[in-house]
């Protein structure tokens, strides 16, 4: 005891050392996390550019100009500052289309996750909380959904109904709930046996109240991680659908659609497909980095 006290006293200013709060630990972890910082910055820039598109876009993204068609970007020979990223096959300014395209991609990611997250979390919490037959049934639903070739069915349904932005969002939303359900289900199962749940039950909480006030706040970080992954997934799928011509319809400046329209000219004007492709890659990569980062910061034990 004496020795311990002696050692403790030897540290100057011992009395002032206070335990950092969980919030502080998390903040310092986040600031040291390279992936999260880079991903967050890139995502933030894309978000701002997309929101400011009507102000900063140099031209209207829909105005065609046949005399200006297939202008190369500024770094190519013959490029001019008038069209920094060049123009497409009907003379629309490529930079403006790219900026407005960011709006579409971000909207797809956000709206899809809203739908799929709602379905997946409801099913996952129900399965994890009630267990037994409910769990068995929801597990069966998950197995069935996993066995459906998703891309194929999404293509078929969008084509049959007719491609448009709301249709694509709805179809993707009803398709991508499965990972939410799986993860939230196992998270809820772990929480269900915690002491604070027993305490809440002893205090007479109803199931609904328990789910809303005790379980949902505790599965929030898992939700955020899956939400980022699925948003990125949705953005890639929309691009693929639009690329195949069975998604968002022209003249909307969806990045996938821009690649589709540019592919006939790709041997002569490779920038027509490389520019939207790189934009898509950066957006998806930054969202994934943010998701991985959030997981590392909030639950480092799940890292591997």
């Amino acid at each position: 005891m004496m020795i311990q006290n002696g050692i403790l006293k030897a540290i100057p200013g011992d009395e002032e050392i206070t335990e950092p709060t969980p919030g502080q630990i998390m903040r310092s972890r986040a600031l040291r996390h390279w992936g999260l910082m880079i991903g967050g910055t890139v995502l933030g820039i894309i978000l701002i550019l997309a929101l400011l598109a009507p102000i900063i876009a140099p031209h209207d993204p829909y105005t065609q100009s046949l005399s200006d068609r297939l202008q190369p970007p500024v770094w190519d020979t013959g490029g001019s500052l008038k069209h920094v990223l060049g123009t497409d096959q009907v003379g629309r300014d490529y930079l403006s289309r790219l900026l407005y395209g960011a709006q579409i991609s971000l909207m797809i990611g956000f709206a899809t996750v809203l739908i799929s997250g709602f379905i997946g979390v409801s099913l996952g919490v129900m399965a994890g909380y009630f267990g037994g037959r409910v769990d068995m049934f929801i597990n069966y639903l998950i197995t069935v959904r996993l066995s459906i070739p998703g891309v194929l069915l999404a293509l078929a349904v969008v084509q049959l109904i007719g491609g448009s932005l709301p249709v694509v969002i709805t179809v993707l939303g009803f398709m991508l709930w499965v990972r939410f359900a799986v993860v939230i289900r196992s998270a809820t199962m772990q929480i269900r046996n915690m002491d604070y749940i027993k305490a809440a039950r002893a205090a007479g909480c109803s199931s609904l109240r328990m789910i809303i006030t005790q379980i949902l706040p505790n599965v929030l970080n898992q939700f955020v991680v899956i939400a980022t992954l699925e948003a990125a997934h949705a953005i890639l799928l929309e691009a693929a659908l639009s690329f195949l011509g069975i998604g968002v319809q022209p003249p909307l400046p969806s990045w996938g659609l821009m690649i589709n329209e540019g592919k006939d000219y790709m041997f002569f004007k490779p920038y027509l497909i490389s520019i939207p492709g790189i934009a898509l890659f950066c957006l998806v990569l930054s969202i994934n980095l943010v998701g991985d980062g959030v997981r590392d910061v909030t639950a480092p034990e799940n890292r591997n």
């Binding site: 992936g35 691009a239 497909i273 998806v284």
Partner: peptide, 18 residues
């Protein structure tokens, strides 16, 4: 791994063709 995950496969295919 993260980069490969973020790459749109149809775009990767077109790039390989180029």
């Amino acid at each position: 791994a993260v980069s490969a995950q973020a790459m749109p496969s149809f775009w990767f295919g077109l790039m390989l063709i180029v």
